[in-house]
Amino acid sequence: MKDFAYLSAPDVPTALQAIARPGARFLGGGTNLVDLMRQNIERPDTVIDITRLPLDRVEELPGGGLRVGALVRNSHLAAHRAVRERYPMLAQAILAGASGQLRNMATVGGNLLQRTRCAYFTDLSAGCNKRQPGSGCDAVGGFNRNAAVLGASASCVATHPSDMCVALAALDAVVELESVRGVRRVPLTGFHRLPGDTPQVETEIAADELITAVELPALPVAAASRYRKIRDRASYAFALVSVAAAMHARDGVITDIRLALGGVATRPWRAHQAERELLGAPATEESFRRAAEAELAAAVPQSQNGFKIELAQRAITATLRQLLTEGGAA
């Protein structure tokens, strides 16, 4: 690992000043950044430890929403009573990710900035436009079983790895960003970018901005919600497909729906197309399946991941069926 300067920021203004240094990076839980530093994928000159900043609280918002500080640990958020009661899919999504030890360290802000686990991104000898723009994409024609079928481009097919962000995408979460220039808010669904021909630019965050909070709006439909994660082993694996879903039906007709997918797309994927199909439709297996097919209609498989299209459709259908028959789960 390269030698780097370390400083611990006592407050937000100090952190925002320090990030102006060349090659500076914020350090939260370190569960991803430090790994990448060990692999020489990240080589910061300065590491600004932000874990002492007062951004570690979950606060009530007027009207029933929550404001989650960027430094709230994943495990803390998953265990938070209000989260479990109002947004069970979020608690489930967090608990489906990583391991207990990692969740104890990982922060909410850091989770938003996780890097892909594409094998070619983390191997310095491979071509990867995300790591080294212009070097090509060795995942195309290589091991791409885990790659994206939605939102990919010729230059990048890497999936976004987060479980938590899938739930946040479904929940209309808003990311609060702060810099010396002020505070701005970006909806989670617009926070992560599609790769296009600049896969190295992954989010809307500017180089001098700090994530300070994630806001969850009041969303009554989310009280009955689920996160279903499908992976290659029972725990400690990234999603092949995941589904975050909240649904309300009255008299057999869907009156409210939130649906997002993980593991299949280059960013946390809000399933707008499926939501449009489902809203006002009868709450039946056929509707679920039709909506799932509509969402995946634009999917483009790579050589090894075509199964994800069928799997995603089945997972959407199964999750909505489960919501209908068993309700949400806390």
């Binding site: 094998a119 082993r233 029972a234 400690y236």
Partner: peptide, 14 residues
Amino acid sequence: MNASLSEYHVPVHA
């Protein structure tokens, strides 16, 4: 291409 315990999947307790 999966020279790590996170990507080479041995069984976990679960």
